[in-house]
Amino acid sequence: MSDKLVEYILEINANPELLEKHMDNPAESASDYGLPAEDVELIANDDKEAIKKRLESQNYDVKGMMLALHS
């Protein structure tokens, strides 16, 4: 996977130790993982909406929402 930030967040989703390290010191954790400086800054700023946008992980768009068909 070429996008290091995507790789980092995917790893955090599945790796509790990395999640703990990230929660303790997000910037240091991101830097140690090898993220480029601009993405380390994004993480350090803790702008959650910006992170979601950068990851294309917005789930507020209803386009992909599944709707129940009433019986």
Binding site: L55, E56, S57, Q58, K63, G64
Partner: peptide, 26 residues
């Protein structure tokens, strides 16, 4: 696949090279 975002879609593409996105039907 029917997943809500590119983040999930990109991850699935790392697991199998023959992924087709059905959200195009929306």
């Amino acid at each position: 696949i029917v997943v809500p975002d590119s983040f999930s879609k990109n991850w699935l593409a790392t697991l199998n090279s023959n992924v087709q996105d059905l959200t195009n039907l929306y």
